[in-house]
Design a protein around this nucleic acid. Structure first.
Length: 908
RNA sequence: GGGCUUGUAGAUCAGCUCGGAAGAUCGCCUCCUUGGCAUGGAGGAGGCCUCGGGUUCAAAUCCCGACAAGUCCA
């Protein structure tokens, strides 16, 4: 490895400028320096910071000055500054184009995976950017170490070389770096050390040089030329790597660190957020708690970016990370006893950042609302948790490791808060030192296996007619390939209009004609470039066929698909820019659209969304479908395009509904949104915290649902008509929803429930009610009353029963056997409050047997099950209160007689 | 994406292990105590035990499913 690095890092630049290669006496790494006496590599922890109070560089620089200096330096040296007008000239901190990471962790992340893999040309070459990044790996160090940040800007100049020196490679990279630091920033060359390292990350690897000054790493120059490959010959950290098709110059310059080194402040935080820190110092009661102050300065900026770039807090994915930071921030506010809502703090950051990152503040209204909601939620969680902790303490007087873990993992109570609560109760709780690793251990065996689908090679590619014209209904084609399986035959043609399953859209079905033969297409799937039709029947390769898709079905699917795009646009207009597709499923009967939003959709909002979507449809906007190269598509429309994930390849299909929505989408779409006709929201639900789902229908399917709903309504009205005279018919769908609320059952259970309630209420005189909803609420009230009446025991009944009582000869105990109308357990329970009674009462469902407290008898042992058996069942209970029953209702008299006999026998 | 947890009175929860009259505390209402308030005392109202289905003579309790909520991790 050393020899590999020695060869890779042996640069003319070093030799020409008098640099010497040395080995660090502390860590053993090799480094290049001008200092003949240097012994250590110049990195932490081998050397301490030397620039605190003694800044390096010409003069103190602000973040903005460093950024501008860097970008313009490389611009002068023929690099292009990236420009994404829609997204505010940058990629967001949430890595929406990546499936493997949630946050943008480095400038190169913007170009992974498709550009770094060589599949897509870079937007410019070479280029220079400054990318805001978020890293939460060292969250625990933030505020403490003086140098760790969750949010920082990584400045990078990147060159993507097909051949090593196509653009530039190591020599020029180091030369640029040297010139920038020495001439522009003014760090003396003697103060700069280049340390040799091996870099790996994101499936790539290569040699790298860490650039160090004053004990601080201020840049990393990575020469990414390898990629992970099982058959590769380079082994790094147990993984094998092979040559990458591209040689990529991946540099990362720490904007904040460079500014810090030029200012020499106590910590990096004073350089990054001087205003916030001085404000915090002025407003806290305890400005000795530097860690909290620094953390707040950092976290509030992190939140400004996270929320400004549209992350919605949630319990999963990137949203969870946002919530994590929000809760940490709230706790620091609490710790410093600051009398300020979290949103005010974040607003201060938004105002500071507004000039350089104007897009962040655009969602201010939503950010405020999100932070208020999150603040409330956290305090609810904590106060619930507090109650829980107090209850545990009351019972056990201590909290052990296991409970500490449960409290955190299940109820979200951080252990130190638990400790504080216990302290207030005068109880000490030990937090295990390895608490974090205990939690990690708990979750360690949750790895799931990834199922990789084998793709068959050498399948003939299929021309996709459905992309040429989304309205292609019939076509002629030639059979290219077939494969008989147990479940139908797989066919591939030279071209097809059948759309395969994918992108949330169902595949087409239809018919293949060959002379007089007709084969029905059951399923269509995509495998590589091939479109496979699964049919019942058989054909031969080389035959010419005619295909016809089930157009009516497909047309509905297209309405649903274009409908989701319109809906997406409507949601964004009404709720805000944080709305982002989180998945979708298009069916024939209905379509689902999942999206990020921090609240559930209210009834009022549902109507507004539906109305707006329908208004948009009436505008009859033409849908633009075009294939664009990726870079110009991104530049024109921004990352909004990637609602349904990022398609591979250098050209993408863009579905643009001007003024409403634009997405990269591989599905089939209408030519004009007017063809949707109408859209109706059937259901809104919250499928996760932070994610909502709308189920809707479009076009003819709306009528189908309307019809179904009307039928249900009429059926229910008919059922109710035995007791209720409904005067008015109001909006049916609202009425059904109200009814579903009244009975707390889903709409499809209403028929059953209303039937049951009517039956259990018993017949009443016919009542006139205003509308359906009133009939339901009246029925519910009546039913409640009936239930109560059933349990109510009238004193007359009791007296009657006592009157019937027989005294058991030789004792003063009275025994009662009877059949009653009201609930037997209530009656029996009432009678035995008085001493001297044994009762057996049947109420139509069961026999309750009970004995007064002063009588020495155990009914549960033999009597209850004995009389239950007579009825074909069994019985049991507590010694002095039992229930028995069974299906043979005709034998009640026999059972009661037996009960009396057994009671008398038992008491003699 | 995965794990864990919870749905019982207006609120906070017990009961569920091991099936057999639905409970506590606060809050609410009425009356008593007091000049009034705080307090104290007596009584009362308020539960489809989230919703389906299954097992059983019997389900808040056991099993399956749905819906809702909380929380942790990647």
């Amino acid at each position: 490895m050393d020899s590999f690095l020695k060869k890779e890092c042996d640069l003319e630049f070093f030799h020409n400028n008098g640099f010497k290669r040395k080995q660090c006496t502390s860590c053993g790494a090799y480094f290049w320096t001008l200092d003949d006496n240097a012994k250590t590599c110049g990195d932490q922890p081998c050397v301490p910071f030397s620039f605190i109070g003694k800044p390096l560089g010409k003069k103190p620089l602000s973040l903005r000055e460093v950024r501008e200096s860097f970008l313009s330096f490389f611009e002068k040296n023929n690099h292009s500054r990236l420009n994404y007008p829609v997204t505010g000239e940058r990629c967001p901190v949430v890595a929406r184009w990546r499936s493997d990471i949630y946050l943008t962790i480095a400038s190169i992340a913007d170009f992974q995976p498709h550009i770094t893999s060589g599949n897509v040309p870079p937007p410019a070459n070479p280029l220079v950017i400054s990318q805001p990044c978020i890293r939460l790996n060292d969250l625990g160090e933030v505020g403490k170490s003086g140098r760790h940040l969750t949010i920082f800007e990584m400045m990078g100049h990147h060159a993507f070389n097909k051949n090593t020196d196509e653009i530039y490679w190591k020599e020029d990279t180091v030369r640029y770096c040297d010139e920038f630091f020495v001439k522009n920033i003014g760090i003396p060359r003697e103060a700069i050390t280049y340390k040799e390292q091996l870099w790996d990350g994101g499936g790539n690897a290569g040699p790298c040089l860490e650039v160090l000054a004053g004990g601080l790493e201020i840049a990393t120059l990575v020469f990414m030329n390898m990629k992970r490959d099982e058959n590769g010959k380079f082994a790094i950290k147990g993984e094998k790597y092979a040559q990458n098709p591209l040689n990529i110059v991946d540099t990362g310059y720490g904007l904040e660190r460079i500014a810090w080194i030029s200012q020499g402040t106590e910590t990096v935080y004073e350089t990054v957020s001087p205003k916030i820190i001085s404000w915090l110092n002025d407003h806290t009661g305890d400005n000795s708690d530097k860690v909290s102050i620094y953390s707040l300065a950092d976290h509030s900026k992190c939140l400004a970016f996270m929320l400004g770039d549209g992350i919605v807090p949630s319990n999963v994915k990137a949203g969870y990370l946002a919530r994590l930071i929000i809760r940490r921030t709230l706790r620091f506010i609490e710790k410093l006893k600051l009398d300020i809502p979290l949103k005010e703090l974040v607003n201060m950051q938004l105002n500071i950042l507004e000039k350089e990152f104007p897009s962040l503040k655009e969602g201010k209204y939503q950010i405020d609302e999100i932070l208020d909601i999150e603040t409330r939620k956290f305090s609810e969680t904590l106060s619930k948790g507090e109650g829980l902790v107090k209850r545990i303490l009351k019972e056990k007087e201590t909290i052990d490791k296991k409970e500490l873990i449960t409290l955190y993992d299940t109820y979200g109570m951080p252990p130190d808060i638990v400790k504080n609560i216990a302290n207030m109760e005068g109880i000490n709780v030990e937090i295990p030192k390895n608490f974090d690793s205990m939690i990690a251990e708990l979750h360690s065996h949750e790895e799931k296996e990834e199922i990789k689908e084998e793709i068959r090679q050498n399948l003939p590619g299929t021309i996709r007619l459905y992309y040429k014209d989304h309205y292609t209904k019939e076509f002629d084609a030639e059979m290219m390939w077939k494969n008989n399986t147990g479940n139908g035959t797989e066919l591939i043609f030279d071209k097809t209009a059948f759309y395969p399953e994918g992108g949330g859209q169902l595949g087409d079905i239809g018919t293949i004609f060959r002379d007089d033969k007709q084969l029905s297409v059951k399923k269509v799937v995509k495998e590589g470039d091939a479109i496979i039709h699964i049919v019942d029947g058989d054909l031969n390769v080389g035959e010419n066929v005619h295909g016809k898709i089930d157009w009516e079905r497909r047309y509905t699917l297209m309405k649903h698909h274009t409908g989701t795009h319109v809906l997406n646009g409507a949601l964004r207009k009404l709720l805000g820019e944080h709305i982002w597709q989180a998945g979708s499923q298009l069916g024939v009967n209905e379509a689902r659209f999942d999206f990020s939003h921090y609240r559930s959709i209210s009834e009022k909002e549902r109507k507004e969304i539906e109305n707006l979507a329908n208004q948009l449809i009436k505008q009859e906007t033409v849908v633009e479908k075009k294939i664009m190269d990726r870079n110009s598509a991104e530049r024109t429309y921004g990352f909004r395009l990637y609602q349904g994930g990022v398609p591979p390849g250098d050209s993408i299909r863009v579905i643009n509904i001007p003024g409403i929505d634009v997405e990269a989408c591989g599905g089939t779409h209408l030519n004009n949104i007017g063809e949707i006709e109408k859209l109706r929201i059937l259901k809104t639900e919250r499928i996760q915290d932070g994610v909502n789902r709308i189920t809707f229908a479009a076009g003819k399917m709306v009528d189908a649902y309307q019809k179904e709903e009307n039928e249900l309504y009429n059926k229910l009205v008919n059922i109710l008509s035995s007791t209720y005279e409904i005067k008015k018919q109001k909006e049916i769908s609202d009425q059904l929803k109200e009814a579903s609320k009244i009975f707390s059952v889903p709409i499809n259970q209403l028929e059953k429930t209303i039937g049951r309630f009517l039956k259990e209420t018993g017949k009443k005189e016919k009542i006139e009610v205003n509308d359906f909803k009133d009939a339901c609420s009246n029925l519910f009230k009546e039913w409640k009353q009936a239930r109560k009446d059933e349990k109510k025991v009238s004193s007359d009944d009791i007296e009657n029963l006592k009157y019937q009582a027989e005294t058991i000869p030789g004792t003063s105990i009275k025994v009662i056997t009877a059949i009653s109308k009201s609930e037997s357990t209530s009656i029996a329970g009432t009678i035995i409050k008085e001493p001297g009674y044994v009762v057996h009462i049947y109420d139509g469902k069961k026999i309750t047997s009970a004995a007064s407290g002063n009588i020495d008898i155990d009914l549960s042992k033999e009597i209850a099950s004995e009389i239950g058996k007579i009825l074909g069942g069994s019985g049991g209970g507590k010694p002095k209160l039992t229930q028995s029953g069974g299906p043979k209702k005709g034998k009640i008299k026999e059972a009661l007689d037996k009960a009396k006999q057994l009671t008398i026998k038992a008491l003699n």
